[in-house]
Design a protein around this nucleic acid. Structure first.
Lengths: 367, 367
DNA sequence: AACAAATATGGAAACGTTTCCATCGGGAGG
DNA sequence: CCTCCCGATGGAAACGTTTCCATATTTGTT
């Protein structure tokens, strides 16, 4: 790349000192009309633009904010990130984005790098807010930051869905539809406090509703075809009539796998998802799910960080109860009296394929 | 935020000059064992980290790459961006992300800011590659960059889908299934050269296949319910038996609207999408579409930029024909001989609701 | 023991800004 | 005509690095 012009070059061409150039171009301080004109002409001729690097060094501010999320392949994060980004550009900030792919190593590495880059603030979704090395680092440096989608640790603000309560609402929905035996399908269970809180909230409310404790099916790869997992899971738990998937994509995957296994959704098996992605309402059956507002959370978290930077009043985080709503859908149907009475619903078709049980399945993980 | 320690502080605490600190901490140049130890201890005690700003100023390199895309709400861009981002972090670069929301103003503004921030390279999807102010600016500065999803202008490399050929493949698919009268549904038609190229490729091949020129329905808001638009469109073009939607979300939206209008997909109306997003294969009917590999494009474009920076050999862009493939799906069905013969298929149900024609509809836009 | 060679260390310049301060010139008021 | 003041301008320091070069110290060789 051609060497860019510096303020010194402009001063030379305009026949003045750098101080004058700075004053003219920034409209700070006085300058005579002819001088002003000469400087402007020189800057124009040289295609001059201030170097933010030089500025940053002198002002010890970078007008840059770091953002760390697990993955923007998940539209929930993508929407939130885009919302925050819009808030940032509006305020004259740029956003450095890093995706961790749910890896704690990538997380701490990203935080370190962003700190070295001297970001003015940070927005992040960590794997485990209670125990995040990166988060500790940020706190120690007293860097303005906000959490996103993590449950807020004591004294911290976080823009997040109340996973616990939302999962409880799912349990209620199952209960209202007479389901008693349910399962919970989790992705990244170990590396995500979100998934864990959803499971806890769900299990707790199941108990309170007199349902049996949910069976846990944990998978760790998105791309994997769930069919084998689902088959084994239902074989081990033939009494299940409903499954709560920890996100909408998983819910779709289950529905597809069920279809392959000739299990009808929702007649034989009800499915509820989490997140409320757009397509959920476009397909047949529509997906029962927890609707969330990722964009709202993203913009809110972004504004929170900005307010910490400029000392203005931070926006109010929404009431916990307003961070989600249960959205009914065709994938959750009432259990008929008959199938409920005998306890064992005909949810499992004749098993004609010898699906191998895979090692990745874990069930009844108590904790 | 607490004032961070500088190399000078470390030198002071370790009782040595800054040059020594730099040498020790960067493992460049010699240092005695005790000196090394003292410096390390001092750095540790002060929580010292080099400031990238200072480094950037002195090396005139920022290890930062700018990325400009229309929106990461679209998973195609999200996947590509994430792929590129992964490539960048692997090479020790960070990514500054800006979403333009398909606005040319936002585009040029983003480019300007990124240039001021002295990014080492740039990755971008512009609205119109033939006529982009931002792109010109980048070229003038000879900044290493690659296009993504734009058709490459002469002499430029771009990692993109061959929209023209892909759309032609859709026309072929319709033809093979005996469709003659089709429509094209576009979003952001004016601000996206991609949509335009798809329309051109589709229309051209329709002609070659002896089909009638496709009717154009242009909408400009994603969130809007398409039902009214679709109703009016089919009323004006009752002969249509298939619609090519310029992306998968639009395709889903059409299918939903069709359902509301009691039009059965694919019996009464076939739908083909574009992009090949994951959920397309999970739902019923599955979506016939053009499958693309955004992640591959994103990583490729990322590597291209890196290669331009370090002067290494750039990766080969895929052959145009390999940038997409037609994916069959349940939303596209053969036209029965009977419905084909009379030309006018019973694609339109009794119109019982007085849908208002909205102003946003434009049809038969030639060019 | 003396000297050459190699190793260890620090000072200072340079990178591109902003901003404080000093200087210079000129117009107004005495 | 002299002073005073104000507007215009430039020099220089500071921000945090790296790196060149010079100097100081150690090691090794006769």
């Amino acid at each position: 790349m051609r060497q860019a012009a510096t303020i010194k070059d402009v001063g030379q061409r305009a026949g003045c000192g750098v101080a004058t150039v700075s004053r003219v171009l920034n409209n700070t301080g006085p300058a005579s009309a002819k001088m002003r004109e000469r400087v402007l002409a020189a800057a124009d001729a040289l295609d001059f633009q201030f170097s933010e690097v030089g500025r940053s060094l002198q002002s010890s501010t970078t007008r840059t904010i770091g953002c760390v999320v697990p993955s923007i392949e998940n539209p929930v994060y993508a929407d939130a990130v885009q919302g925050a980004q819009a808030v940032f550009v509006n305020a004259g900030y740029q956003m450095l984005l890093t995706c961790t792919n749910y890896s704690a190593d990538a997380e701490i590495h990203a935080v370190r790098t962003l700190i070295a880059k001297q970001v003015d603030g940070m927005l992040l979704t960590v794997g485990d807010a209670q125990n995040s090395e990166g988060l500790n680092l940020i706190r120690r440096r007293q860097l303005p930051h906000s959490l996103l989608f993590n449950a807020a640790p004591a004294g911290q603000t976080s823009w997040s869905v109340d996973d616990h309560a939302a999962a409880a609402a799912v349990a209620d929905a199952f209960a209202k539809n007479n389901h008693v035996h349910t399962g919970f399908l989790a992705l990244n269970f170990l590396s995500s406090d979100r998934a864990r809180r959803r499971f806890e909230g769900f299990a707790e409310r199941c108990m309170q509703n007199g349902m049996t404790p949910p069976a846990l099916l944990e998978v760790d790869d998105d791309g994997l075809d769930l069919t084998a997992h689902l088959h084994g899971f239902l074989e081990d738990h033939p009494e299940l009539t409903g499954i709560f998937a920890s996100n909408d994509f998983l819910a779709f995957a289950v529905i597809r796998s069920a279809r392959k296994l000739s299990i009808d959704v929702p007649r034989d098996l009800s499915i509820v998802g989490f997140d409320g992605i757009k397509v959920g309402q476009m397909v047949e059956p529509s997906l029962a799910t927890i609707a969330t507002t990722p964009r709202v959370l993203g913009t809110g978290a972004g504004k929170t960080v900005l307010s910490m930077i400029d000392g203005s009043a931070p926006p109010n985080v929404p009431q916990k109860e307003q961070t989600f709503s249960f959205r009914a859908g065709g994938s959750l149907a009432p259990l008929t009296a008959e199938s409920k009475d005998d306890g064992k619903v005909a949810a499992f078709p004749p098993s004609n394929d010898q699906t191998r049980k895979t090692a990745k399945i874990q069930q009844e993980r108590s904790k």
